[in-house]
Structures are given as structure tokens and as C-alpha cells.
Deep mutational scan, measured.
Amino acid sequence: MDALKSAGRALIRSPSLAKQSWGGGGRHRKLPENWTDTRETLLEGMLFSLKYLGMTLVEQPKGEELSAAAIKRIVATAKASGKKLQKVTLKVSPRGIILTDNLTNQLIENVSIYRISYCTADKMHDKVFAYIAQSQHNQSLECHAFLCTKRKMAQAVTLTVAQAFKVAFEFWQVSKEEKEKRDKASQEGGDVLGARQDCTPPLKSLVATGNLLDLEETAKAPLSTVSANTTNMDEVPRPQALSGSSVVWELDDGLDEAFSRLAQSRTNPQVLDTGLTAQDMHYAQCLSPVDWDKPDSSGTEQDDLFSF
């Protein structure tokens, strides 16, 4: 819950932080000083300027060897085509990944977070970031790969997607708890209302004896509580940590079903599988986004697919 609360507080303090972009060759504004600060901008989305290598189908939802083989196929196909790589912007948030063309600003792909089953910074092609997700059109699994400016960037994108998945799962947990509370309150309110109706004398007997209905007592009954809980029953509950912020979080049926399955089948359902080692994760978390744009010590960066 700490990640969720800190993310909400950060967004309320400075929503404009989320509009910064990394990996864009110096076009961005001043960047936060450390990885923790940038992680807090996830709610509205972190932007990464990358190059799209392509996509291939895979048979399993996750796995280092599986993704490595898929990336190898994608890279080989991209090299064989001889075409310049498409420059894209990857927007990562707890909602998922939005992929747009840098030149036309046209939407290429919009992947809900619950469809993503794996992401990684490839070991062999260490400047490549990739994720595996279920197609929104059918049940097939797709591996999408992107060329980053350097290994640090690939690791940073991988960690960002993993963190977005974690925050999304926490949102789901909060929403589920809130819905259970509202359902319980609604049920209790309905029981109270039913009890009051059972003990209320029939209207005919009131008229016969000349008694008047006590409207004041009726007004004191917990009807307002019942209506408050039943009027918006169809509205999706939102985490309290975000009250007053500009973010509107809505959970669709697909996300609810997917996270429910994860909660039942996995020990740590909030953790998205990645190909990063503990050492890689520690190294990337210690980086400032400013470091992502620094040239690798191995030599001059080449803006070309064939540089790796």
C-alpha cells in the first residue's frame, strides 16, 4: 500500500511530472533526481522514447528462454528487412502500455495491464526491452520488442512496467475491499429498513384510530445511509488515497477476473515476472533518469539497429 499512497501523494503535489519523457535525446524537461521519484509518476504514465523492432507469436506467457528466442527472431526479421526502425513513445501506467508513433502521434497499440504476463531486458541484446501480452483480438500470446538507447534504459522500462503492474494490483485490492464494505453496509441498511417496515402498523389501523404518522421519526431512520450505499452501487469504487486528485481509476471486468485468478494461483500475485536478476534490479533502481541518457562506457552510441 505504500507504493499506492506515495504515488497518489506525488501526483497530487505535481501532476505535471508524469508528462516528462525519457530517452528522447535531450528533449525532456528537468528530471527527478532518483528512481523513487520517477516511480511516483506512474499514475498518469511515464513516457519512454524507443524504437519498435516488431512482434512475434509465442506459445507460453512467460520465460527467459522463451523471450530470448522470440527477441532473436524479431531482431533477425528487422535486420533482414533493412528498413529504419519506427520511433515510438511507450506510455507506461497502472492501466497498461500505450504505444504511439512519434511522427504521426497515431495510436499503435493499447495493452491493458492485466494482459501483460512478462517483461524483460534481454541478456543477449542488452539494449532490447520486450514484453509478452495476450492479444486483445484473440487468445494468442505476442512478444513485442523495442530497441532502447542503452542497457540502462531497457532495464528502466522493464522495472517501470513491473512497478505499474504492482500498483494496478494494489488498486484492485483496495477497490475489492471498498466494494465488500459497501455491499455489507448496503445489506445491513436493508435489514434495518426491513425491520422498521415489519414493526410499522398498517396504514388502515392508523387511520381508524385517528393517529398521525410521525414524519420526524421517519426522517431519523437510516434511510439516507441505505440510499447512499445503493444509489451508486454500479459505480466502481476508487482508492481513497486518490481522493481529490485528477486521476480516475476504473476497474473493468477483465482486470477484476484476471487479478482474482492471480490472487488464487500465485504466492506473490502482485509481482510481474521479469528477466532481471536481483543485481540488475538493484543497479537500475539506483540510477537517476539522467543516467539513462548518458552514453555507455563501451563506446559511442549508434542510432541504428545494427549497432548491437
Rank of each mutant, 00 (worst) to 15 (best):
R238S: 11
P94I: 08
C143S: 01
D303S: 06
R238F: 07
D126G: 00
N268V: 02
L206S: 11
K204R: 08
F48M: 12
E170I: 06
D37L: 10
A195Y: 02
R29A: 10
E33F: 14
L99C: 10
A284R: 09
S243L: 04
A68V: 02
K30I: 13
L262A: 02
T104H: 02
A162S: 13
M153H: 10
G254W: 03
A263G: 03
T277Q: 11
T230E: 08
L287H: 11
Y131N: 00
A7F: 12
S246H: 02
T200G: 15
P295C: 02
A80Y: 07
M281N: 07
P269E: 02
L57F: 12
A130V: 00
L11E: 06
C148W: 00
L213E: 14
E59Q: 15
C119K: 01
K30G: 10
Q155F: 08
A70I: 02
P201Q: 15
V236N: 02
C148D: 00
T120Q: 05
D234A: 07
C286D: 14
H125Q: 00
V192S: 05
T41I: 11
W35M: 04
K220G: 03
A221P: 13
A221L: 02
L66Q: 15
A164R: 12
E216C: 03
S205G: 09
T209C: 05
F165P: 01
E235F: 03
D280H: 05
T274P: 03
L251A: 11
D2V: 07
K83A: 09
L43F: 10
K30M: 15
V192T: 06
T36C: 08
R115L: 06
L17I: 11
L276C: 10
Q173A: 15
V207T: 09
A70G: 07
E250S: 12
I116W: 00
N102G: 13
L42Y: 15
T230P: 05
N102C: 07
Y118T: 03
V167Q: 11
E188R: 15
G25W: 15
Q270P: 03
E188H: 04
S135R: 14
R151G: 02
A164P: 05
Q240A: 12
Q20D: 10
K150E: 15
Q279G: 06
L215D: 08
G25R: 06
K87T: 14
Q155T: 05
F259C: 02
W172I: 02
I116G: 01
D296G: 09
V271Q: 02
V88F: 01
A162L: 10
A80E: 14
E217Q: 05
D273L: 05
K179W: 09
G96M: 01
V247Q: 11
L213G: 08
S117Q: 06
T36S: 13
T158H: 02
S175Y: 04
A145S: 08
M124F: 05
G24P: 10
A78Q: 00
A68R: 02
S67A: 10
R115G: 15
S224A: 04
T120G: 02
P61E: 14
F306C: 13
T277G: 09
Q155K: 14
A278I: 09
E59W: 05
E257F: 02
P289N: 05
C119V: 02
A130R: 00
R39L: 04
M153S: 13
A208Q: 07
K150Q: 12
E59P: 13
K51Q: 03
T41R: 04
P222Y: 15
P222L: 11
A80C: 02
A221N: 12
M281K: 11
P202N: 05
A68M: 03
V236S: 13
E216I: 04
F259R: 02
M124A: 01
T231P: 13
K30H: 08
V271F: 07
R196M: 10
V75M: 01
A208Y: 12
V157R: 00
K91W: 02
G254V: 09
D234L: 06
G244E: 08
A195V: 05
G54F: 01
K62F: 04
E178L: 14
R73K: 13
N232I: 05
E178I: 12
G54L: 00
F129R: 00
V236R: 14
P269R: 03
M55K: 11
M55L: 10
A219I: 04
M281A: 11
D126W: 00
Q173C: 09
E109Y: 10
W249K: 10
D234V: 10
F165M: 03
M46C: 10
D126S: 00
G189Y: 04
A10C: 12
R261C: 02
E217N: 15
N229M: 10
Q270G: 05
R9K: 13
G63F: 12
S227L: 05
D198N: 06
W249N: 04
L11W: 05
A78H: 01
